[in-house]
Write a protein that binds this DNA or RNA. Sequence first.
DNA 1: ACGACCATGTAAAACGTTACATGATTTA
DNA 2: TAAATCATGTAACGTTTTACATGGTCGT
Lengths: 193, 193
Amino acid sequence: MSDSNTTQYAILGMLATMPMSGYEIGKHLRNTLDFFWTESNGQIYPALKRLTAQRLIAPVATPNAGKRVRQQYTPTPAGIRKLAEWLAEPPRIQPPRNGLMLKLFLGRFAPEGALVQHIVSFKRRHEQTLDAFMKLRESVPKDDAGSADLKYWMLCLEHGIRLRRAEIDWCGYVLDTLGASPSRSRRNRKRSE
Amino acid sequence: MSDSNTTQYAILGMLATMPMSGYEIGKHLRNTLDFFWTESNGQIYPALKRLTAQRLIAPVATPNAGKRVRQQYTPTPAGIRKLAEWLAEPPRIQPPRNGLMLKLFLGRFAPEGALVQHIVSFKRRHEQTLDAFMKLRESVPKDDAGSADLKYWMLCLEHGIRLRRAEIDWCGYVLDTLGASPSRSRRNRKRSE
DNA sequence: ACGACCATGTAAAACGTTACATGATTTA
DNA sequence: TAAATCATGTAACGTTTTACATGGTCGT
C-alpha cells in the first residue's frame, strides 16, 4: 500500500480502535470524526476490499444473535504494524481551499450585505459545534479508567474547542469591522479590537 | 458555468483584483494566497481557456515594451456580474481531512515519541507563518489610501493570525500533556491548563 | 405484504496533481 | 551559445463524490 493512500490508513486506524463494518465506519465518521475526517461510501467499501486482499484487516466472526448481519472487520497483526509505520510519518498537509476566505478576499465585488450573511452563518455553525464539544468534554468520566485512547481523543476535542473559539472570536471582529446590522453588532461589540 | 466550479471562480476573482497571465496567477497564488487557496498549473490554464470561451474573461492587449510576452486576461462585465452572483452564494465548506488530527486520534498505536515530533514540527511551521503574517500586517500603510480591497485583505490576514495563534497555543498544551522531552516542555509549561 | 430503512456495493463523472513537452527569452 | 528559467500547455494518473442498483430486514 502506497504511503499516500490516506483513505485506507484512516479506515485501518478506525478499525484498530474498534472492529466495525463498512456501514458502521460510515456512521462513525459522520457522527464522531466528521469534524476532522470524512469518507464517502464510494471510498469505504472498495478500501475494505483492498485492505482485506492485503491481509491488513480480516473479517470477524460476527455474533449474529438473530440480528441483521453486518460483516465486521478487525486489523491483523500485520495491519497494526503497518498502521504504526504510517503514524510515524509526518502527516500530509492538505492544500487549503477555504471558500469563505476566498469570498471575503474578493469582498469588494460582492453584493452589499452578502458577506455579513456568510459570516453570521459561519459563526452560528461554529457556535453550535462548540456547544456540542463542551457538552462532550463535560460528559467524559473524570476517573482515568477510560479506554487507552481517551487521552488522545481529548486532545483532538481540545483542538476542536480552541479552534472554534478562535473562529467565533474572529467572526465577531469581522462583523464589527464590516458594520453588521445594529441588533447583531451590539452583541459582538465587546470582542472588537 | 456550474455553481460548484470553484477553480474557475477563484481565477475569475483573482483577475478581478488585477489583470494577470496564467503564470502570474500561479505565482500570486503561491506567494500570497497559498494560505487559504491553491491551484496547480494543470488547473489554471484549462480554466483560463474555458473562462475565455464563456466570455467571462478576455485577453488584454499587453504593453509588451520589449519584454517577454505574457498573455494577460481581465474579466468582462459579464464576468464581474457572474462573480458577484457567486460571491452571494453561501460558501461551500470543504470536507475536512486533517491528517495531524487523525494521527493524534490514533495515537495509541503510534511508536513512542512520534506524535510529539509531529506536533513540534506543526508548531514550528505555524510559528513561522504567524511571524510572516505579523510582519505583513505591520507593513501595511496606516493611512486609508490603500486599494478598495485592502479592508477585506486585512480581515483575511487577521483570520490567519488568530487561527495560527490558536494552533500554536494548542500545540503547547498537547506537548505538556504528552510529556515532551524536558528541554522542550520547560519552554511550554506556562501554557498548560 | 408493504413501505421504510438498513447495508453493501459499483459505475461514471468530476476534480486535482504530477510530470512532462515545448519553445521562447534572458544571462553568463 | 549554453544554461537557466520563463511561460504555456497537456496527457496520464489517482482520488473523491454522486448517484444509483441491489437485496435484506424491520415494523405494522
